[in-house]
Design a protein around this nucleic acid. Structure first.
Lengths: 195, 195
DNA sequence: TTTAAAAATTGACTTAAGTTAAGAAATGAA
DNA sequence: TTCATTTCTTAACTTAAGTCAATTTTTAAA
């Protein structure tokens, strides 16, 4: 049940003492969630961080015109959350939805706060997690800022190959910030002149 | 010297004990820096967080084609840094440059780590600072994702009026991710039909 | 295997932004 | 004030992406 999470956590904080580990895992709530389920709704405060044991989720934002723009894909062995909503306890601007059948380990904010007070190792891990999420997010933001859709598509295939193979192209187009038809054209162009 | 910083820090952590405050401010390095100076170069690890007592800086990223894209403006009474580079100790992808004569209070990473060990209040403040920067950054990322250049321009005038008045339009165009000529056209269009 | 639904592509057309080049307006120094 | 520089705007043209509509391909269900 906790094997995958253990591997992940050892990456953040090596040699976690058994005591702290048990204190931590006691707080976790296991959930199986079918494909197509919304686990965080825009407007709600995100009160959890969820480790994905199995499956894939997407985060998306609804524009004023009612279109969905994907902000994030998250597969097994990673955490999903809206961390800024979680930290600031402000309404989330994004919705998180399962796009495969999923198995989660939910960690709730109220339990976290007690845990951090009770166990200093857990508190340190929490701090490092915040930093890690921050660093990871920054990297993703960069390419949106300076790369063309074509370049972002090539980067996506290269860096997120495991996700590319699992989600429909229209979801990827939305993630790249372009229409599905535009992605088709880019793919057509690239197919003709393979680098 | 530390008055503006004090106001800022009380917002993050009210009623800082005098001891902790003195321990903290002892670490700060005051610097006057003329307009047009680079204080962080892309490729270098960012080893500081700098509070701006006076002036204005911009952060920018150089694209593969050699163009500069502004990622951030930061005026007095705020912190400037590349926080992800600072935390992860990885090379910065952005450059930070003064666009007015500036007065800074520099806080260096090596001193910070000693400080956090020595003073738990300072450590808590540091943790909250990370969270605050994360939350603020998330807000800015959102509009890049879902708004048109025209809408981003209107948001910028509204939310960053104090910066709008101080930087040339071509810097704003770069921040919005468009060419200066395109911003001119948008302004022309908006001037004709004032909402 | 056949059929229906979902996903992806293609074509024609429109629109917004990029590019290049020229010129006007604003700013600052002599 | 005058002149030079910087900043901003305008115009003509090109290009990339959006939109709408139709069609092909793929996938999944019966």
């Amino acid at each position: 049940m906790f094997d995958q999470l253990r591997v992940y956590m050892e990456g953040v904080y090596p040699n976690i003492p058994e005591d702290s580990w048990n204190t931590f895992t006691d707080q976790l709530v296991y959930k199986e969630v079918p494909k197509g389920t919304t686990i965080l709704k825009a407007g709600a405060v995100c009160n959890f961080v969820a480790f994905i044991n199995k499956g894939l989720v997407r985060g998306y934002i609804r524009t004023a015109e009612g279109k969905e723009v994907n902000s994030d894909f998250c597969p097994e062995n990673e955490y999903t959350s809206n961390y800024s909503s979680f930290l600031a306890e402000t309404p989330s601007d994004c919705t998180i939805e399962t796009i495969e059948d999923c198995e989660f380990l939910f960690f709730y904010k109220d339990k976290m706060q007690d845990l951090y007070k009770a166990d200093s190792v857990c508190a340190e891990i929490g701090k490092r997690m915040t930093e890690k999420v921050f660093i990871d997010d920054s990297r993703r933001t960069l390419s949106q800022l300076i790369a063309t859709p074509e370049q972002r598509y090539l980067d996506f295939i290269k860096n997120e190959a495991h996700i590319y193979e699992r989600v429909p192209l229209y979801h990827i187009a939305s993630y790249l910030g372009i229409a599905p038809e535009s992605l088709s054209r880019i793919r057509h162009k690239l197919a003709k002149k393979p680098a």
